[in-house]
Computed example of a mutant assay.
Amino acid sequence: MNRGRPRIFNPEYVLESAMQLFWRKGYEATSLQDLLQATGLSKSSLYDSFGNKQRLFEAAFTRYFDMRAVLMREELGRAASPLAFIRNCLNSVLEDVAPGHGPRGCMLVNVANEFSTNDPSVEKLIFLATRRFREVFVEAFEQAKISGELSQSKDPASLALFMHCAMSGLRTQVKSGIARKEILTVIEIIMANF
């Protein structure tokens, strides 16, 4: 029995390409043809490997938050101090631009806005992504307490929630075109709360 040609493609490349495309355009606006062009897959390879567009999206979104959480932990380890890491995270909202396309916003926020609570499988991924990012912020604020940068009366979990909400809001404002100077002013106000 002939099983056809073996799948020959780089899964990391495919997921990265799909992630970048979904991040830039969103789920609904990304067509199957867009995905085939971005990933280099044939239609049959895409369906054989991922099942359908939504499963590919879920794999690409998972890649986004898994990789982002790892990078954040690495950045925390390299930062001059825990609060320097927090400031760097806030400042990073000004740097997240897709080449030739302008600000993308946060993929997590984009996905949450697009899907809301309409899809249970995506809702679970949104919850998982949110938890992963907040865990890194909690770790940073705990380290800040230990190092004396942060008052012992401050609750790292509450600050992590505040930080997550602040980052989401800032990314949305950058995406909407608010001036860099205004974002930097807001970042100073946020930092004054730590």
Rank of each mutant, 00 (worst) to 15 (best):
E139K: 13
G26H: 00
R87L: 14
R87I: 08
K124E: 12
M67G: 14
P99L: 13
Y47E: 05
G148R: 14
S81Y: 15
G148C: 14
F137C: 08
R87S: 13
I146P: 02
F61N: 02
G105I: 01
L159W: 00
F115N: 02
I86Q: 03
N88I: 06
K25S: 04
L108M: 14
A160H: 03
T30D: 09
F115T: 06
I146G: 03
E135N: 10
R63F: 02
S81R: 15
W23P: 03
S153V: 14
S158R: 13
Q37N: 15
M163L: 10
S42E: 02
E149A: 08
F85W: 10
S116Q: 00
A98M: 10
I126L: 11
R131H: 03
R73W: 13
E75I: 07
A160P: 00
F50A: 00
S116K: 03
A69Q: 08
F85E: 13
S116A: 09
V122L: 00
A112I: 04
S45H: 12
A84T: 15
A157M: 05
E135C: 11
R63N: 01
K154A: 04
H164C: 11
K25Q: 12
V97A: 11
H101F: 15
G105N: 07
L159Y: 05
R131G: 05
T30V: 12
A98P: 10
T39K: 05
S158N: 11
F50N: 03
K25G: 00
P99F: 09
K53H: 03
I126A: 09
R68Y: 13
E149S: 02
A79S: 14
G102I: 01
C106W: 00
T62G: 04
E95V: 08
S153N: 15
E142Q: 10
T130G: 12
T62D: 02
R55P: 05
A160D: 06
G102S: 06
S116V: 01
L35F: 15
L125D: 01
G100Y: 15
R73F: 14
L150I: 12
F65T: 01
V111G: 02
A60Q: 05
V122W: 01
S147N: 11
R132C: 09
Q152A: 11
L161A: 12
Y47G: 01
L32A: 07
N118F: 15
A80T: 11
S45L: 07
Q143G: 08
L46W: 08
G148W: 11
F65A: 06
V136C: 12
T130S: 13
L35G: 04
C106S: 11
Q54C: 05
L32G: 06
D155I: 15
N110F: 01
A160M: 06
C165K: 04
C106K: 01
R104Q: 00
F85V: 07
K145P: 10
G100V: 12
M67E: 14
V138Y: 04
V93H: 00
